[in-house]
Each structure stands twice: as C-alpha cells, then as structure tokens.
Design a binder for these strands. Sequence first.
DNA 1: TAGATTGTTAATCGATTAACAATC
DNA 2: TAGATTGTTAATCGATTAACAATC
Lengths: 208, 208
Amino acid sequence: MTNNKVSMAVIRRLPKYHRYLKEMLENGINRISSKELSDVIGFTASQIRQDLNNFGGFGQQGYGYNVEDLYNEIGQILGLVKTYNTIIIGAGNLGQALANYNFASHGFKLEGMFDINPKVTGLRIRDVEIKDMDLLEEEIKNKNIDIAIICTSRDAAQSVADDLAKYGIKAIWNFTPVDLKINNHEVIVENVHLIDSLLTLSYFLKEK
Amino acid sequence: MTNNKVSMAVIRRLPKYHRYLKEMLENGINRISSKELSDVIGFTASQIRQDLNNFGGFGQQGYGYNVEDLYNEIGQILGLVKTYNTIIIGAGNLGQALANYNFASHGFKLEGMFDINPKVTGLRIRDVEIKDMDLLEEEIKNKNIDIAIICTSRDAAQSVADDLAKYGIKAIWNFTPVDLKINNHEVIVENVHLIDSLLTLSYFLKEK
DNA sequence: TAGATTGTTAATCGATTAACAATC
DNA sequence: TAGATTGTTAATCGATTAACAATC
C-alpha cells in the first residue's frame, strides 16, 4: 500500500482529510470528487489527487471517490486499525486534561498515569490511577505501552524521555517546550509546542 | 524592519530560535556563529543566515551574532514587546489547564474565562473568575481583549468564533478539532489540532 | 593584516499546480 | 457513446543549500 517515501507535508495533511471525510460520512455524503473536496477542505483538487496517489488509486475516473472507502483507507494509512496503549507522564493540569480527552474513541487507550508528586499519586482520573514514577518501567513492559505522553515540567522532560527510551517505548507525544534528544532513532517523537504556536500567533498580531 | 513577505516556513522557525537563544543567554553564552547555532538547533547554517536576513542584518562578519541582541530582535519580531490581553472560552479541563500555564511570563495576560456551564461559572482559577458567556461582548470591549483561546466543545466552536469576530477580537487560538471559518480576514486564527498531531504520530508508529 | 563569518546571489532540490491521456 | 473525473506526467513555483565576495 505505502510507497517508499512520502513527504512530511503530505503526511500532515492526512488527518485533515480524515476529519473532513468523517464529517461527510456523518452527513450522508457517499461520493465526492477531488474538486468538491477541494472546495470544502481548501487544498487544490490537483494536490488532493497527488496526495492520495501516494498511497494508491482510491478513486474512479468519471466518478470520483467513495467517501466511506476513502475514509477507511486513510484511517488504515494513519494506523487507526489497532488500539494503542498510552500512558501520561506528569499528572498536573495539562496531564489531567489530556486524560479526560476522548482519544480512546480514536483507538488510543489510556493505561496509566505517572507523577513524582505524592499529592497526586493515588488519585484516579477516569478510572486510571496516578502512580509513582518508580513503577514506570514495570508498567511499560507489562502493559505493552506504545505511546508515552509527556506533560512534565520543562526540566524533567529530557530525563523522562531518556528513561522511556531505555524502557522500550515506541513513541513519545511531547507537550513540554523542549526538543527531546533521543539517540534511538526508532523512537518516534511528535511535539506539541504550545509556546511556539502562541508566538506564531503573536507574530501575525504584531504585523497588523 | 520587516520586509514585505516572509514565508510561513520562516515564521514558524522563529519561536525555536527564540527558545534556543534564551537558553544560551541563561547559560552565559554571549556570542554565536550560524555554524554553532546550526549544531544545536538542527537547521543548516545557511538556512539560519537566510532566515535572519529576512528581517535585517543582525550579525557581524568575522564575529557572528551577539546572543542577547539577537534574542531581543527576534522577540521584537515576534511581537513580545507589549502585553496581550487574553481570555479563555470554555473552562473545562483543557481551558483550566491552559489558565494555569505561565503564558503571562511571555506577555500574555489572562483577563477572563467564560463558560455556559453553571457548574463552573463563579469558580476562580488563578484569581480569574469564570463568567457566563452573556458577559463576553462587554468584557472583550471593556478590557480590550486581543486574543481569545477557544477550548469549547467541537460543536460550540464555530458559533463562539462567529461571536468573537463580531465583538472585534483580533486573534483566536483554537484548540478545538474544527477549522474555523471566519469571513473577516483581519482576524488571525492559529490552530492547535491535537488530534491531527496524534494521528501523525500514529502514522509513523504504523510505518515501523 | 589574516582569519573568520556574515550577507547575498546562484544552484539545487522538492513540493505544488497545470495539463491531459486514460478510463470508468 | 459522451461526459466526467481520475491518475500521472510535465511545468512551475518556492524553499533550501551551496558558494563566495564583502567586511569586520
């Protein structure tokens, strides 16, 4: 299905296709042309066809694309066919907020939360107990954790990431304002740098 | 200072320069060449010089860049010279978590929080009271609010954005999984699509 | 002055857009 | 069959990298 090398620009557009196709599916739209999709999603029709053809010919000449099929194909490409086990490291405000998010509906199951602060360890968020960091290694291995969500302080982030890599985590979703350095290039790191996003907004605000 | 048209790619790198320069400043580093900066930040030296020269010649041949000066220049470019007044719409878990963030240290002052849920209105987060949405218009105008942070449910997002635009908000920092449609192109919209980020991570996880 | 490193132009690379033959 | 729209190749555009003269 997947070719050798798909560009980052294409990959980052996939979730948006997925979102819009889901919406169309819910609205009972069965069929869509690249031109129609272009009108709602804002990419050019040409770009849409190019993007999709990185992964296969999902359309049909003279007809367009079947919405449900395309939605499922993109879900497959994004790996939304299995459930991933996740943990949250750092159960402060943001960690707790993410624990309450409905990522489960997309196939991401929260299997644990960890913190060093005894004020929060023992608490339960949505049936998940916040445990001490000492139990991290054991739980990652026993519960077969795929993804760790780092919501610690800035200062703790790199050392936590080092531990996670050592314990065999497959991916890190990083919410700290730090670019994590991980030697093992098998570990996937995806950053949500909130401050960078806010400063980008600030740039455009100043430009006005 | 700023030329006519700087590309989005450049603008999105600016916060990263800002972060690294701040770190260097704190570590007592006075001077840096594009080559040295390249080694820590991961962009090529050539790209760094190109990026910076979009805004002016901040360096000196044979010497490099003065860290403090460059940090201040980039802060200026990013608009971090004045304080922006912000409000949070939607005081659920995420809204409350963001209220507890220290954006104030970067010059973003939280001036209000709003929700429709009577269970949370009246509560105070960090000295900021959660008010009913009915007071939104008045507060935006009276308190001269620049930025609204939308943390509502998916379903409320567009209608809230419409109101904000009507009340004269300058910028929206959107945390809902919706691409807001705003007719007034003067309103700046910056999205933090958490789900898109997670699905991108998922893509690479599946690829392994 | 000699050495270092910028600012800037030119070359390359990659991504987007346009065009159109293939085909449903 | 005729019309519509894809899949794909070619053209264009923009961003990154390389090179080097300017200069501190």
